[in-house]
Design a binder for these strands. Structure first.
Length: 220
DNA sequence: ATCCCGAGGG
DNA sequence: CCCTCTGGAT
């Protein structure tokens, strides 16, 4: 075997070990499939852009009570929806998108959220990130969600050297078996949110500190 | 001040 | 590729 292949194999093994350690270190409760319906998860995910789940969870009950189905939301008034979701930020574009999304789901898919990447990203307000959340967490399909946390952590751990989300997704797909995609991307995301933070990473609490190559370059 | 579980539009 | 959209947390 030529050296380049050996090097590649060693890298893959190292990253595989990191992935397994991350999965082992996270509470099982964090990885359950989402209990919400695909429609509810879709709307909650669109609303979650640049905002925490807690704030989303504060507005969704009222939203779904008022507009239970995609058809209902599709006919809602812009101003009324804006008022309900105001505290999640970006409320004008989000209101416009989820109303249009309700109409699209109702008209193009008979009120049922589609289950393919292509159809999902065709919906208003749905990009690759949101589509992958649905595929992985609502439909149980292998999916890698790349948000700013995953982007940062995947770079720090050496899974990728790219800033482009689509490219990062491809790099992770190449490095990991599909059966691990959903679990690993969830762990990378949570790891980035709670431990490997942008500003002041909590290296003392890091479960994969021993495998980390970034800590040497990192702050203090 | 700066960042966050983004996406659409120019 | 860059800009904008928003409120809340830190």
């Amino acid at each position: 075997m030529i050296p380049k292949q050996l090097q590649q194999k060693a890298r893959q093994e190292r990253l595989g070990k990191i992935a397994e350690n991350l999965i082992r270190s996270m509470p099982a409760a964090e990885m359950e499939l989402d209990h919400r319906t695909p429609w509810e998860l879709l709307i909650a995910t669109i609303l979650s852009a640049q905002c925490t789940d807690e704030r989303v969870n504060r507005v969704t009950p009222a939203l779904f009570r008022r507009y239970p189905t995609p058809a209902d939301l599709g006919q809602a008034s812009q101003r009324d929806v804006e008022e309900v979701i105001r505290s999640t930020g970006f409320f004008k574009s989000k209101a416009k998108n989820i109303i249009a999304c309700g109409r699209a789901v109702e008209e193009k898919f008979h009120g049922k959220v589609p289950e393919t990447m292509e159809e999902l990203v065709g919906l208003p307000g749905v990009g690759r990130k949101t589509a992958n959340v649905l595929l992985g967490n609502a439909f149980g399909k292998p999916a890698i969600v790349v948000d700013t946390h995953v982007k940062r952590v995947a770079n720090r751990l050496g899974f990728t050297t790219s800033d482009d989300p689509t490219r990062i997704e491809q790099d992770l797909q190449r490095l990991l078996p599909p059966a691990r995609w959903t679990a690993v991307s969830q762990r990378l995301l949570l790891h980035g949110r709670y431990v490997c933070t942008a500003r002041r990473p909590q290296c003392e609490r890091c479960p994969i500190y021993a495998h980390c190559t970034w800590k040497q370059k990192g702050p203090a």
